[in-house]
Design a protein around this nucleic acid. Structure first.
Lengths: 331, 331
DNA sequence: CAACGCCACTGGAACGCTCCAGGAGCCCCT
DNA sequence: AGGGGCTCCTGGAGCGTTCCAGTGGCGTTG
């Protein structure tokens, strides 16, 4: 099938338009110094021939590919999808393409993908994963500008960080519960990672501020069962702030199974506004991160780094509270 | 910061090892015709210098980048994530990298991303999206080998297709309901797209085979309400086969809201074994597609096309039934 | 011992683009 | 009339690879 004939190059266009290849290059990139008449002619010819500029050749010659990479640990996590959407929209505004690498939640795969994306010649990388090893992150950052999403501390210098303000989010959740009249509020934690710790500490501080005792229960230590058992008793907790929506949803599930009325006997607040928060019944009250905005901000930081800005910064964005059906005044 | 010094090239390695750049190239690619002693020396030097081969230059010179592209319409769809995981694992086995493009469920974005991925110089593309316009698909297929996942008909020749056997899946669902003793089974459809049609037709055929009347209700025509109203009556349906899990979950939700006992008064079977099937209560009985296997098969087909195989084929893989809590014998 | 074949290695062209130094033509000013 | 400064355009070098046609040395063979 002759349609497989080699793709037209800049030289083909130049020949067909009767100009030099340099001029075609200038015209296509929209450079000044090309007369309008010639430019339109060249573009028409290019279009006619079905010319597409070869990114590989351009990247090789310019040292820039106009493509940024995004490394994601878990594709199926809607949080990641939204952040990626934000990144893409901002990149597109700047005329850059985006490719995504998928780490399948495994540190070694993640590191390999990161290398592979960099090898492809992207101009910069945004890492949306808390799981990437610090050394891999550091090594990558010496190769290209790198922006990290979500990890609360800038371990290596040279990387910028965008994250949601977990402390403030936890405070939002607790203010909500406190204003409903809850006093015996426990925290259900399932992870010791950075974001989870920030939320846990913020919980502790909010309780201290309100002069109330703080109690953290761990899922992997049977915390859920302990919580459910206690919440029947007169002195038991009337509300629970969970470290994330998955944990909250599981708790809700178990509570309903145990015949405990939610929210009448136990109020539950999650964190993340994940899809599951809308799917459970009653709907989960939760703290929402500004996911697209986080992505857009990450892209903005990366673009400025690509343009030569050497400063690495840490940006935190404000979360908000979404009230659904799992919170009410204690009865 | 002096770590930003230019990355070492093959020439640097050659100079450091005291050989020609051609020999370095051969050694690194594992070509024959390099003595063992020289090869190990070259590799050691390369490693020492932190040499990484430049994919852009290699792609330009060879016309092959050793990277395949995957175009996905919706990142957050776990179905897609699993297919991608399958693709990646197979590609990795063959020593190829993978980049993902994200179409955000919008045909025009999808088409633009596809072009962009192709521009990047990937050796082939796998499209995991039913939404891509046929023309865009066709245009892409003339540029590189292309494999389509999920769309049941090969519209343009030149593309291979991997899909789940929707007809057989629907038959599995109906066999299950029939063997439970159901006789009045309706189909609830929400889409007229290809996969949905295949399931709908298979429903009709299965009913005909069993000598039972087939009734298809459409969600967008108030089918859900009609179904719920009818299922109370003596002659009303005792079971429903939904076109996908989302539809099934919504039906389940409405049925429970209406005070209808599921599965006692109404059995429900979905399709896809999406995450939601596990999250609703009771868990949804559904047809599961072999998602990773589909991805692996797609990658296998693509690789053989890349290696010069000109045949385009259509492969269907067998689905399986996952029985959960929404099906029981009619009472 | 000359001829041959094979092995290990080399140098340069090519891939498709960008960038740079420079050239032709034109208008304006002195 | 001569020069200066535009604007519009050109040719060639260079980006880091791969590929191809050799080259030289060595062992085998008639």
């Amino acid at each position: 099938m002759s349609a497989d004939r080699a793709a037209p190059t800049i030289v083909d266009v130049a020949r067909a338009a009767g100009v030099s290849k340099s001029l075609v290059s200038l015209a296509i990139r929209g450079d000044v110094g090309v007369s309008d008449a010639t430019r339109t002619r060249i573009l028409a010819v290019a279009d006619d021939l079905g010319y597409r500029s070869n990114v590989l050749a351009r990247g090789l010659a310019r040292g820039r590919t106009q493509v940024i990479g995004v490394l994601v640990s878990d594709l199926s996590n809607p949080y990641h999808a939204d952040v990626v959407a934000g990144i893409e929209s901002r990149a597109l505004d700047a005329g850059l393409g985006t490719v995504i690498g998928h780490g399948r939640s495994r540190p070694e795969v993640l590191a390999a993908r990161l290398d592979q994306i960099l090898d492809l010649g992207v101009d910069g990388v945004i890492v949306v994963s808390a799981m990437l090893a610090a050394e891999a992150l550091d090594a990558a950052a010496t190769r290209r500008p790198l922006v990290m999403v979500g990890r609360p501390f800038t371990q290596p210098r040279r990387v910028s960080v965008v994250r949601n303000h977990d402390e403030r989010g936890a405070a939002l959740a607790l203010d909500h519960l406190l204003s409903l009249g809850h006093r015996r509020i426990v925290h259900l934690a399932s992870s010791r990672r950075a974001a989870a710790s920030a939320r846990r500490h913020a919980y502790g501080e909010a309780m201290t501020r309100a002069d109330l005792p703080a109690t953290t229960l761990w899922v992997d230590e049977g915390g859920t069962a302990a919580l459910l058992a206690a919440s029947g008793t007169p002195e038991g907790p009337t509300a629970c702030f969970a470290g994330n929506d998955r944990t909250a949803a599981a708790l809700l599930h178990d509570a309903l199974d145990a015949g405990l009325d939610v929210p009448a006997r136990l109020s539950i607040v999650g964190y993340d506004d994940a899809q599951i928060a809308r799917q459970v019944r009653p709907g989960l009250t939760t703290v929402a991160q500004p996911r697209e905005a986080i992505g857009r901000e990450a892209a903005r930081l990366l673009l400025s780094r690509i343009d030569g800005d050497r400063d690495t910064v840490e940006v935190t964005l404000e979360p908000s509270l979404t009230v659904r059906g799992t919170t009410a005044a204690p009865c």
